[in-house]
Amino acid sequence: MSTRELKHAGLNLQQTDPKTHEEAESRVFGFWVFLMSDAVLFALLFATYGVMLSGTAGGPGTQNVYEMKSAFIETLLLLSSSFTFGMASLAMKYEGKASRISVWLAVTLILGLGFLGMEMHDFVKMIGEGATPERSGFLSSFFALVSTHGLHVLGGSIWIVVMLVQLSVFGVTPAVKTRILRLGLFWHFLDIIWVGIFTIVYLQGLTP
């Protein structure tokens, strides 16, 4: 097992012993498994949302609560942040310089926080218009789905901050590299979930 090469894209552990490779392999694989479990969680939230679309209890429905423009900008922010994270991964793979990785991570963080800020703004606006989660089952399922994603992005942002600190404290060590790789998986995963949310929640809201 020790002679096998690591096939995970973006991870370059350079000349380290086989043990480090093996450990990284377990860790990255374990994270993939976690993401599967997390994907089940989101799948169920999506399913609940689908089932509860009609449960508006006479309150606002899909047509009158969503702010498409804002959702579109949020989508752009999050998609660009995935791109900038990709740049961080490439920097990690080819140059391994802490400063270059940190810059791209910081840009990603700013985009992520921008996304969160806009989402918060949307929520506040909706709540101001009386579209609160207490209003109906439909709105409950909307807030649960979208803010669970938002909480994940918040978690990811905190994780980026931790990694920025670790990059400056430890430098680009194998442990830091595998952590950034897993953070990347997490971040792109959230991007995919958001594409689902944009399609199923927001675009569906456009249909009469």
């Binding site: 969680l41 169920l44 939230l45 609940t48 089932v51 509860m52 009609s54 449960g55 508006t56 209890a57 309150g59 989660p133 207490e134 209003r135 109906s136 089952g137 439909f138 709105l139 409950s140 399922s141 807030f143 649960a144």
Partner: peptide, 24 residues
């Protein structure tokens, strides 16, 4: 997910599983 939704119903007044208000 089920226990978290029940908790949201109980703590924050959501309507996932309530009688009425679109709960199911």
């Amino acid at each position: 997910v089920a226990t978290a939704m029940l908790a949201l119903d109980r703590y924050l007044g959501f309507h996932f599983f309530t009688n009425g208000m679109g709960g199911n």
